[in-house]
C-alpha cells in the first residue's frame, strides 16, 4: 500500500509536469484547433458531395457516415500524435541512459506522461471541436451511459495499444540513425488504417483484412464505432476483448524488444 502511494506521488508529479509543459504553447493550441476545424469542414463537404449521388456507401447512410467522420476527426489528433519522435530523440541523444538510472520504470513513466498529455489534449481540443461539430454540422451523441462507458474503456485501451506499438516501433531508432522517418511512416499508415479518414467498414475486403493485422484500428475505429452505434452495445465486450489481446501481446513485445535493442547500444557504448 505504501509503495502504491509512493508510485502515485512519483508518477503524478511527472503527469503534472507534462501538462504544465503543454499549457505553455497556447498559440499552438489555437492554430491546431483552427487546422482541425478546417479538416472538419473539408470532410463534411467531401462526404456531402459523395452522398449527393447515392443513398448508401458500403451500406452506410449519409447521417451515419457523417457522424462517424466528425467523431473520428475529433479523436484523430490523439491518434496521430505519436511518441516516436520523443523516444527516438531520447535514444539518439543518449538521454535514454539517464532514464535507466532513475528509480522509476522508464516505460511506465513515459506511459503516464504520454497519457496525461493525451487526455489533456483530448479535453482541450475535443471539447471545442465537439461544440463546433454539434452546432455547425449536426453531430449527434448517444444518450446511453453504457455506450459512453464502453467508449471510454475502449478508447483508453486503444491508446494503450498504440502506446505499446509506438514504443516497440521507436526502438528501431536504436538501429537507424533518425527517428523522423519512422515517425512519418507511422503517421501515414496510421492515418489511413486507424479509420480517421473513413470508416474501416468501407474498405474493400482485402484491405479490411490488412487493417485487421495492424493495431491502428484498435485506437480509433474501435471506440468511434462503439460511440456512433456502428458497433451495437451487445458486441462492445467482444471489441474490448480483442483490444485486450492486442494490448497484452504488444506490451510483452515492446518490453522484450526494448530490452534487446537497448542492450545492443549499451554493449557498443552508444
Amino acid at each position: 500500500m505504501r509503495s502504491l502511494r509512493r508510485y502515485w506521488r512519483v508518477y503524478s508529479a511527472f503527469a503534472a509536469n507534462a501538462v504544465k509543459l503543454m499549457m505553455a504553447y497556447s498559440v499552438w493550441f489555437w492554430v491546431e484547433l483552427l487546422g482541425q476545424i478546417f479538416m472538419l469542414i473539408i470532410f463534411v463537404y467531401f462526404w456531402k458531395a459523395v452522398y449527393a449521388n447515392t443513398e448508401t456507401v458500403s451500406g452506410m447512410r449519409a447521417a451515419e457516415t457523417l457522424n462517424y467522420i466528425l467523431i473520428a476527426q475529433i479523436v484523430a489528433p490523439l491518434v496521430r500524435w505519436s511518441l516516436i519522435l520523443d523516444i527516438g530523440g531520447a535514444i539518439r541523444q543518449g538521454t535514454v541512459a539517464i532514464e535507466f538510472t532513475r528509480p522509476v520504470d522508464f516505460q511506465a513513466r513515459w506511459y503516464v506522461e504520454w497519457t496525461s498529455q493525451m487526455l489533456f489534449q483530448a479535453i482541450r481540443l475535443a471539447l471545442p471541436l465537439g461544440a463546433v461539430a454539434m452546432i455547425c454540422f449536426g453531430l449527434r451523441l448517444p444518450a446511453d451511459p453504457a455506450v459512453w462507458g464502453y467508449f471510454i474503456v475502449s478508447f483508453l485501451l486503444g491508446n494503450a495499444v498504440l502506446f505499446c506499438f509506438d514504443w516497440a516501433f521507436a526502438c528501431l531508432a536504436f538501429y537507424t540513425t533518425e527517428a523522423w522517418g519512422l515517425h512519418i511512416l507511422r503517421e501515414g499508415v496510421a492515418a489511413f488504417f486507424s479509420g480517421a479518414l473513413l470508416p474501416l467498414q468501407m474498405l474493400p475486403g482485402w484491405l479490411q483484412k490488412g487493417a485487421a493485422f495492424l493495431p491502428f484500428g484498435q485506437a480509433l475505429n474501435a471506440p468511434v464505432s462503439i460511440l456512433t452505434g456502428i458497433t451495437p452495445v451487445s458486441q462492445a465486450p467482444a471489441v474490448i476483448g480483442t483490444q485486450l489481446i492486442w494490448l497484452v501481446g504488444l506490451f510483452l513485445f515492446s518490453r522484450f524488444f526494448f530490452g534487446v535493442a537497448s542492450r545492443k547500444v549499451t554493449v557498443q557504448g552508444g
Binding site: G181, I184, L185, G188, V189, A191, F192, L197
Partner: peptide
C-alpha cells in the same frame, strides 16, 4: 516519407 502521408 511524404508519399506515405499522401497515400492515406
Amino acid at each position: 516519407s511524404t508519399i506515405f502521408i499522401q497515400a492515406a
